[in-house]
Design a protein around this nucleic acid. Structure first.
Lengths: 215, 215
DNA sequence: AGACTGCTGTTACCGCTAGTAACCAGCACG
DNA sequence: CGTGCTGGTTACTAGCGGTAACAGCAGTCT
């Protein structure tokens, strides 16, 4: 029976692939996203062409490497989005989950968010602006948009508004988190509370400062 | 009198620098951010070492190139922030100004936001996570934080909350804008309204969807 | 047994990049 | 005349992503 045989092959190949990914991860976490293919191959105890056979090109390797982490992070966020409590509790839990993740493994975060896209990758048409931006950011935005669309009644244009909000909220979380991670100006809890306050419309109701021209 | 002489020199050098920047801009807008130094030099009608004499290295050139656009964009946003009307009008005007800018010149936007950071730039310590993220994003966040801090009365911790909000709002604008620019799912006006609604606390008051577990 | 196939692995190369050392021409000054 | 200074060049290095061509070693078919 050759299916067993083929399955052995397949699992063997996949295990190899997994090993290579682990080596790549070690190097990327040590040297940053600009790790060279040579360095990764050396860490895995082999040479470049094997990497290329497994992953096609560098962006393929990086995509494979990123997928595992993005999947894990998205699952964590999804769980937080389903946590008990009222809506505000859930939003705060989600913000906490995201910030805790990037705080716990900043190197992974940096790799996922600032992938130093290899320049040789385009080659075809004369730049399509969006290209993909940061894939993780897009995926998080889409996912959150889905959740919002399915849970909130936003009237006509609901699906569209939900997607806008999904990307908007994710971007808010991203930029604030990036800044916070670099400067650490306050506790995680304080950051979460400030952001939730913002989402809860405090911007709309807070008073103008005395003597200011208004905002 | 040699000061006149030296001033001539200085202005001559600066004019040259300006010419080089213009050439670089032409190439970057044509070929995208991964334009090579060779290509830029050729466009300027000279060869590489001169570029290096003027700008040190590639990131120096790109920083010089970026500064002009970021300054212009920030001035535009600042003006929108000072536009007449109530607070919501001003927020919508600012969102409009940003989105109009990235819509009008997407190549410039792409260059500023996805600068394909040259890998050789680090070299020192083993990755400082924040490094800088996207400089423009940071600057916009800081600027908006300043405006918020000086115009709104946010109580104790006001300055801190203002900065959090500055970065958060900018990130919201960024991610939503990036997504919108790529997919064009709606008019600019609709996007602005949805985002302003979000900032105005609609997330807090909207009803759960019938049959959903709540959000 | 022997040929064939498929996988792992290698060496050696290509074309490109950022960046630099060394040199050359012209022009002002003493 | 020489002595700088300044804008410019050629020719190079080191390293990158990526690939072609070849070598060894399983198992499989005839």
């Amino acid at each position: 029976m050759d299916t067993g045989q083929r399955e052995d092959q397949r699992t063997a190949s996949e295990r190899r692939r997994h090993e290579l990914l682990e080596a790549a991860e070690r190097v990327v976490l040590r040297d940053g996203p600009e790790a060279s293919m040579n360095a990764i191959a050396a860490e895995a105890g082999i040479t470049k062409p094997i990497l290329y056979r497994h992953f096609g090109d560098k962006s393929g390797l990086y995509r494979a490497l990123a997928r595992r982490h993005t999947d894990a992070l998205l699952a964590t966020l999804r769980a937080a989005l389903d946590s008990p409590g009222d809506r505000r509790d859930r939003v705060e839990a989600t913000l906490h989950a995201y910030l805790a993740a990037i705080e716990a493994r900043p190197q992974v975060y940096r790799f996922l968010m600032h992938p130093a896209e290899t320049p040789a990758a385009d080659g075809e048409k004369g730049f399509d602006v969006g290209r993909q931006s940061i894939p993780l950011l897009r995926r998080m935005g889409e996912d959150l948009g889905d959740v919002i669309a399915e849970r909130l009644d936003l009237g006509p244009d609901g699906p569209l508004v939900a997607r806008v909000w999904g990307h908007g909220i994710v971007g808010m979380m991203y930029a604030a988190g990036d800044w916070w991670l670099g400067e650490r100006p306050c506790s995680r809890d304080a950051l979460v509370r400030s952001l939730a306050d913002l989402l809860w419309g405090r911007l709309a109701v807070v008073e103008d400062r005395a003597g200011s021209q208004g905002f």
